[in-house]
Design a protein around this nucleic acid. Sequence first.
DNA 1: GGGATTTTTGGTTAAGATTACTATAATTTA
DNA 2: TAAATTATAGTAATCTTAACCAAAAATCCC
Lengths: 223, 223
Amino acid sequence: MTPLQITVDVVTVIFSVDTEAQRLLVLLCMDEPARLPGMPLSGELTLAEQAYQVLATKVQVEHLYLEQLYTFGGPGRDARESPTHRCLCVAYFALVQYQETVLLPGPEPVQWVPFAELPPLAGDHAEIVRYGYQRLRNKLEYSPIAFQVLPELFTLGELYQLYTTILGDNFSDYSNFRARLLKLGFLQDTGQKVCRGAGRPASLYRFDRQAFLPYKDKPMVFI
Amino acid sequence: MTPLQITVDVVTVIFSVDTEAQRLLVLLCMDEPARLPGMPLSGELTLAEQAYQVLATKVQVEHLYLEQLYTFGGPGRDARESPTHRCLCVAYFALVQYQETVLLPGPEPVQWVPFAELPPLAGDHAEIVRYGYQRLRNKLEYSPIAFQVLPELFTLGELYQLYTTILGDNFSDYSNFRARLLKLGFLQDTGQKVCRGAGRPASLYRFDRQAFLPYKDKPMVFI
DNA sequence: GGGATTTTTGGTTAAGATTACTATAATTTA
DNA sequence: TAAATTATAGTAATCTTAACCAAAAATCCC
């Protein structure tokens, strides 16, 4: 019996939100066919560090959220496989701040692609992206990842736009969204006012992590 | 550069609920130290099939729920590791029906251990069990896994006991639990009455999968 | 046998949350 | 300067939740 040879790829589904254009974006390597950024597992890093490495070789960004998504591994999912060689794929999920993200040059150029207009993807990468999108929606509803990728100070309108771009605008109207979020008590009004385009100036808010902590493990719904 | 050799173990955290004794149980291999059932990845099966295989070599059971839990893989998590050898662990989560489960004899005997009285576990298996317990609580609250491990016909009291044993009895009182579950509309009253010990006879209910399906992707809370 | 106990069942009520909607304030745009 | 735009505040009807209460129908146990 020949021992089974195993390859493990770490790929990262990187989302970001262009609130201006109201678009959810996915970072893709524009090969033919397009694929998710990834690299084979190396020896010294944890899986999470590796997933971050994948991200960091493609983009420069300070504010992000990263977590493990799922491990894909049916036999036959990769062309390199054979009876003695198995390929697994540990997928990670990332959300990065769009405005500050810089795409890095490299041998395989990456590009933001609107989630609504995904091209055909290599192997099972389309499935991985769909899985990541579900995770994104769920996380948004019951965890504060939005504040991870918003600037330190933001308006409630900007927060609402982030939510509508990802969830669609039928999850709540703006007025009720505002009331609910403010009631939760972890948004700190700085008192500063800004004008973003037309309309009455808005208050700048800050996410108060201290005030949020009591919500750990308690039911907490944003939408 | 020597190629990295990778071993992948598939382990399964198997929970069940002894409603009589009001105890949540975990299946452990009673080695020294105790550990979760698992086996190295082989060539022909999907990860899920492999996880089921792990389960099926230890217990005989018809009704169960199985899903992927998490992939653990920091370097240094396993004694077999070296600079050229990396061990990953793809963990699965299972919930099985206690009453019908038969522990199978084998070289490494398994045993139900109360979750409240876990012995020291090998490697990072304690972390994996804790992770599984969190998943169990979450799943119970917003998915119908309870019906997967309840007999075809069950009383609302039995359903409530399953919930209290896992979540503690401070999540809802019986009366409100009943009302909420019945309102959801996917519990079919068969009209049959049974007496379980003392007390007024209870109606036997059936989980109506058809009536449940509309809840897919919709918020749905049981507690 | 018969009262105590246990469990199921079916409520009620007050408080809180949600939804849809309205109105007003303060800015930019035309 | 009027119109449009966005932020903010609030209301009222409806629905949900939490904490109870009480009767019904069985077993338990003396």
